[in-house]
Design a protein around this nucleic acid. Structure first.
Length: 420
RNA sequence: GUGGGCGAGGCCGAACGGUUAGGCACUGGAUUGUGAUUCCAGGUGUAGUGGGUUCAACUCCCAUCGUCCACCCCA
């Protein structure tokens, strides 16, 4: 058990008992996105390392110490993708998708070499959405409203929405200077991590969890004061739209995102039910990234959600979507066992929607009925010597009262057809 | 990378320095062609691994591996 082969630390199997939950989540998200006019894009799991360095930021933790990077056989440095936006932008650029506005989404595994803990894994799964060529606040709003709808459909209502504006790059630079000045004046009261970030990434000091640092931060200047008219109006339009749509939100002036490419609107959906990793969906605007990766300047907004975290919430909420089957075909005796798959095919032809499980592997009646019961099937369909001789099938209800009846195939198809 | 908790059968799990409770699940039987209830019987553990202390270790100590939680970071 302990010394046998096992999955890599932080990478987990998703077992059959849990798969219904995953599929429910994935299907719901896909349907919502499709209905909003978004199309899926699929990109490779591996990209040249350079792509992530240039998009996420060379000095971010993700790039500095969390990427699974390796040299290809020809010496190129490649990396497993730690997030989806960079690949999406790369693909859009490469295939000339950016001449028009695009609404794209993707799903799949991401990889980060972090210490695993609740809600955080080395291989984890995201569904992300990226829009290109849309500069107005309305698209920021659409994305947030879309996620709000998604939570409603999933029955997840314990989230809070936090939003902020990071301004444009020059505004942020001005703010950064003011912030560094303020924090430097209190440098000796900051925790060690925050002192270090003072030089590397001062904005991140804002969301430090250290109590004493938080006290200092509480008195810090806020970015809002440095926003110009245009940026401010953009943000206000998003806020007003949320209000008009009846979506509650909280402006959190200390909300900054960990990836360098964000500007203007940033938002996070947060829950308190998952311990320390409470962010379930997060994103924002990144108008500079496309140009940064070599394209023309194209505005962009996107977000990503963490599926492991959402699945855990669905589970906590009591969603147990085990897929029951409709009919379990019991076949006892050599001849019946051989005939069963053929009969099953005829049933499937007649009722394409029927969820029919054929018993395979022998066993007596008692044995097979036990399995029929366990399967959750509504009915057991019996094919034994008697049925075979008479060319009939027995149908027995397993979930409610009712007699077992001997039916012709046609009568059976009619009966089941009315139900499934 | 830092700090802490935890490792017993397929799963969960009590107690205890002196030959490992119990529950669930599983298998067979009571029922020869009929499940879920009930009753009876049964199998599965060198207690993650290695070392130490002890007359004696699942229990105490150390190491190692794994896992979980938190910091960091982030979905």
């Amino acid at each position: 058990m302990s010394k046998s082969l096992q999955a890599i630390r932080g990478m987990h199997d998703i077992l059959p008992e849990r798969i219904a939950l995953w599929q429910h989540l994935e299907d719901t998200v896909r349907d919502v996105l499709t209905n909003y006019g978004y199309t899926e894009i699929r990109t490779p799991l591996v990209e040249v390392t350079e792509l992530f360095k240039r998009s996420i930021g060379e000095v971010t933790d993700i790039v500095e110490k969390e990427m699974y990077s390796f040299d290809d056989r020809n010496g190129d440095s490649l990396s497993l993708r730690p997030e989806g936006t960079a690949s999406c932008v790369r693909a859009a650029l490469e295939h000339g998708l950016l001449a028009q506005p695009q609404r794209l989404w993707y799903r799949g595994a991401m990889f980060r070499y972090e210490r695993p803990q609740r809600g955080r894994y080395r291989q984890f799964h995201q569904i992300g959405v990226e829009t290109f060529g849309l500069a107005n606040a309305e698209i920021d709003l659409e994305l947030i409203l879309l996620t709000a709808r998604l939570w409603r459909l999933l029955g997840l209502n314990d989230f809070r929405l936090e939003i902020n504006s990071l301004g444009d790059s020059d505004e942020r630079a001005a703010y950064r200077t003011r912030l560094v000045a303020y924090l430097s004046a209190h440098a000796e009261q900051l925790d060690a991590d925050s002192q270090r970030r003072l030089t590397t990434n001062p904005l991140r000091v804002l969301d430090s969890k250290h109590p004493q640092t938080q006290q200092i931060v509480a008195g810090a200047p806020t970015l809002m004061d440095d926003l110009g008219d245009e940026t401010r109006q953009h943000f206000e339009r998003v806020c007003h739209g949320l209000t008009a749509a009846g979506v509650n939100y909280r402006i959190n002036p200390r909300l900054v995102r960990g990836l360098d490419y964000y500007n203007r609107t940033v938002f996070e959906w947060i829950t308190d039910q998952l311990g320390a990793q409470g962010t379930v969906c997060a994103g924002g605007r990144y108008d500079g990234l496309v140009a940064q990766l070599g394209g023309k300047s194209v505005p962009a907004v996107g977000f990503a959600m963490g599926l492991e975290r959402l699945v855990e919430l669905l589970e906590l909420a009591g969603h147990v979507a085990a897929p029951p089957i409709d009919v379990y075909l019991v076949a006892v005796g050599e001849a019946a066992q051989q005939a069963a798959p053929i009969v099953a095919e005829r049933l499937r032809d007649a009722m394409p929607k029927l969820r029919l499980l054929t018993h395979c592997g022998g066993g007596n009646f008692k044995n097979q009925f036990k399995k029929a019961d366990k399967s959750g099937a509504q009915f057991a369909l019996v094919l034994g010597e008697t049925e075979l001789e008479q060319g009939l099938l027995s149908l027995k209800p397993l979930r409610d009262e009712g007699e077992q009846q001997l039916l012709t195939f046609e009568a059976l198809a009619t009966f089941l057809g009315e139900r499934f």
